[in-house]
Computed example of a mutant assay.
Amino acid sequence: MAAELTEVTATKCFEGWQKIFSHKSDELKCAMRFGIYLPPQSEKEKVPVLYWLSGLTCTEENFVTKAGAQRYAADHGVAIVTPDTSPRGCNIKGEDDSWDFGTGAGFYLDATQDDWKTNYRMYSYITKEVSYKEQCKLPEVIQANFPVLANKQSILGHSMGGHGALVCFLRNPGKYASVSAFAPICNPSECPWGQKAFSGYLGADRDQWKFQRYDACHLMQDYDGPKVDILIDQGKADNFLTAGQLLPDNLTVVCAKKDVPLKLRMQDGYDHSYYFIASFIGDHIAHHAKYLKAS
Rank of each mutant, 00 (worst) to 15 (best):
M266S: 07
G157C: 11
A67C: 05
P139L: 15
D110T: 14
I155R: 06
H163D: 00
K66M: 06
S273G: 10
E129S: 14
Y176T: 15
R88D: 08
C217W: 13
A2C: 10
G157P: 01
D26F: 12
Y72Q: 05
L53R: 02
P40E: 02
M32I: 04
S180K: 06
P83K: 06
E134Q: 15
Y123A: 12
A31V: 09
C30L: 08
V81C: 14
S273H: 10
A177P: 00
V260G: 01
S295K: 07
M160I: 04
V8Q: 11
I277M: 05
D75V: 08
A67S: 09
Y201C: 08
G157K: 02
A2T: 11
Q41M: 08
Y72E: 02
R171F: 09
D75M: 06
L28D: 05
E140M: 15
K152N: 08
M1P: 00
S159T: 02
A237D: 14
D222G: 06
Q245S: 09
D259A: 00
L231T: 02
P139D: 15
E7T: 10
M1W: 07
R206W: 06
A237Q: 10
T242I: 13
L50W: 01
A3E: 08
I281H: 03
Y120A: 04
H272Y: 08
W17S: 04
Y201D: 02
V64P: 01
Q195K: 12
E134M: 15
C30P: 05
L292T: 04
G89N: 09
V148S: 12
F34H: 03
F198P: 13
Q41E: 02
V141T: 14
L219F: 06
V254G: 03
T118Y: 12
